[in-house]
Design a protein around this nucleic acid. Sequence first.
DNA 1: TTGAAAAGTGAAACTTTTTTACATATAATA
DNA 2: TATTATATGTAAAAAAGTTTCACTTTTCAA
Lengths: 304, 304
Amino acid sequence: MFTKSESPQQNAVRKGAATIARSTIGKIRGTYDQLSRTEKKVAQLALDNPGVVSEMTIKELSSATGVSTATISRFVKRMDYANYREFTMALAHMAIEDTPQVSSFPELDEGDSLSTIANKTFRYTIHSLEATNEALSEHELARAVLKLIHAQSVTFFGLGGSSIAALDGYHKFLRTSLNVAFYPDYDIQLMQAAKLGKDDCAIIISHSGRNHETLNIVNELNNNGVTVIAITSYSGSPLAQAADVSFLSLTDEVNYRSEGMYSLISQLAILDSLFMMTVLRISSRTDQTLTKVRDVIEQTRHEL
Amino acid sequence: MFTKSESPQQNAVRKGAATIARSTIGKIRGTYDQLSRTEKKVAQLALDNPGVVSEMTIKELSSATGVSTATISRFVKRMDYANYREFTMALAHMAIEDTPQVSSFPELDEGDSLSTIANKTFRYTIHSLEATNEALSEHELARAVLKLIHAQSVTFFGLGGSSIAALDGYHKFLRTSLNVAFYPDYDIQLMQAAKLGKDDCAIIISHSGRNHETLNIVNELNNNGVTVIAITSYSGSPLAQAADVSFLSLTDEVNYRSEGMYSLISQLAILDSLFMMTVLRISSRTDQTLTKVRDVIEQTRHEL
DNA sequence: TTGAAAAGTGAAACTTTTTTACATATAATA
DNA sequence: TATTATATGTAAAAAAGTTTCACTTTTCAA
């Protein structure tokens, strides 16, 4: 709580045995009875609107209360503050402590101010990431990384909104020594799926996990014995069921308008994790590869 | 009561308990690049010891940093505070909010277990998002949304890694009533830039903000009077300077391997925010558009 | 009651702090 | 290199805060 022991001149001002270190509210409330009529006006306003008063100058407070600046100045000393500045500071602190952070997840509202909308959006996003992170299992991660490292090639699949995640995965893994591919078009994705074999690995991303086209691709991959790593939001989805390894992007959606929005970022974070793990695991195996990877990264580092 | 509504720029900066237009850290960090040598000294000290600095008078801070009081006074105005008093107040708040945070950010290590790597990746990501969120200013958001809503067309630009963010933005805004476009190829982006005019709006994404090709596009856009909204990681970058409105994706990168990785997600989150704001603002203007947008979203909801 | 003495108060003088104006230096630009 | 724009410190002005002092009210013993 707020003892003002930081300020050196403090001790000089401190008087009387009565005043032990005390919170601002306590200090004012405790002394309230002993205050004079005018001083009470000041104390009252300060207690009622600490936040507002904390931003006032002594003159403003003076005219707001009808009490002279002189009296206010003396008042704050009586309350054991070194000066007016310190008093307002304490009020500001008090105002903050009094506003407990309610970290509920309120729905976005049309009446929201712009920064509120932004804040809520970020909060949701962060929340999704936390949930996604918690759902990751070491075991699944290990299997995925193992498959990736030993794969002859890694192809990323994703349609519609999920093509963005697939593209991102492709971009990232391009920096590694792995042999990666991505095709934006569905028909080509399907054709490529047919060409892969049991030494290859596929990473498929789909929010719902039940999109028809996506399932066609998975089917094709399964038939060819390709290792399938899935990233989806629903563990019960056909995609998750058909995959060798699957990761969940959990979103806890509240607002239907946002559907898929937060899951994309969670998908990317999963890909980031896979990327980092792959890089670190590959590099610890072959120093040669390591330096090669580093070179590549170094090159791309300052771009774009 | 006595709010200091006399000063006009005040309202933009004014922070209600919950709706902080922009946090102090974000404000200082976001502007850090643009500060002069002397100003950086002040900013540094303030960031390092907000609690201590918050209790200093301007003179004390002056002699502590070796910078004249005049410069400090001007510095705080540049940071958008009404006066020095308000600045110290904000620092005091920040000092409180910051203290419970002990979360260190350990570097990723090759010896880390897989789940540790994943956890760290998620932690970094979340941290970047928090920093990015704090750096958003209500004022810039408002300007961006206004431009977007009234634009004849909105084109997304982004090269290399940033093309993913641009593509994502395009995908999202496709769901709105806005007239949007995106072209993956650089040459086509450049040609399209030449075709836009002063009623159009462009959203350009670039991590470094100093990529040569990107700047060519910006140049073209500026010449044609196109409104440019930039998303970049450096406030001092040529892109940020040339843009009408710019947003910062702050990443606090620790590991060179991750460069750009976390910023992508922050960029997406900024786009998400812009998207939500635009949808909500458009919808509150025309009910007709609202239902139309809802229909579209409803349609796309269960896909992919 | 009444008349010191004590306590409270505001106006104004005074001190300190902060801001602004101005001159100079430095960097950027053409 | 000349010219303009940008920073910076000094010093003067303005604003904020404190103290002094004269006046009023309250307290309380005679």
